[in-house]
């Protein structure tokens, strides 16, 4: 079947199998390998991307369902995403890096959708993303730092 999916602001028209998962579409069809696969049961969040601004596990969405929708992945050059990435670097919010794209996309979602994400809120909203290396502490610190920076920028622009 033909699909037309907007990924990071670019339209991709492709003829795909109806059963193809969005994560395979991104990784195998578009070569956007930043989105990872860590499980086959929708538990780990390594595959997290945004679909029309909402965080979804791309291993649980068919590419067909993304037809005519907008997908944002770790490869996006959205400036706010850059701020989050930089915060992860500064706070050492990763070790092996495998969960990282999913963590960052989930963080992007958290920061886009909450005015005031406190630590409890951040932790609760990261529950669907597993990390085996960091023990999450530096990840939570990265999210907090990103939040401060994003807020700071908003205040400045006001």
């Amino acid at each position: 079947m033909m699909v037309n999916i907007n990924v990071n602001g670019r339209e991709y028209k492709k003829d795909i199998e109806p059963r193809m998962l969005l994560v395979s579409f991104l990784r195998d069809e578009l070569n956007l390998t930043g989105t990872h696969i860590g499980c086959d049961t929708s538990n780990c969040g390594a595959c997290t991307v945004l679909m029309d601004g909402k965080s979804v596990k791309s291993c649980t969405v068919l590419a067909a369902q993304a037809n005519n929708h907008e997908i944002t992945t770790i490869e996006s050059s959205d400036p706010k995403l850059d701020v989050i990435k930089q915060s992860f670097v500064e706070e050492n919010g990763l070790q092996c890096g495998f969960c990282t794209p999913g963590m960052i996309m989930q963080t992007f979602y958290i920061l886009e959708n909450s005015e005031d994400a406190d630590e409890e809120y951040i932790k609760k909203n990261l529950r669907g993303n597993l990390c085996r290396c960091t023990g999450y502490k530096s990840i939570i610190d990265s999210v907090k730092k990103a939040e401060e920076k994003v807020k700071g920028e908003i205040n400045v622009s006001k």
């Binding site: 696969i37 890096g97 990282t100």
Partner: peptide
């Protein structure tokens, strides 16, 4: 670190 936050790690499945 930059490589990984940008999704540019090269794992075997990539």
């Amino acid at each position: 670190l930059n490589r990984f936050v940008n999704g540019e790690g090269k794992y075997v499945d990539d």
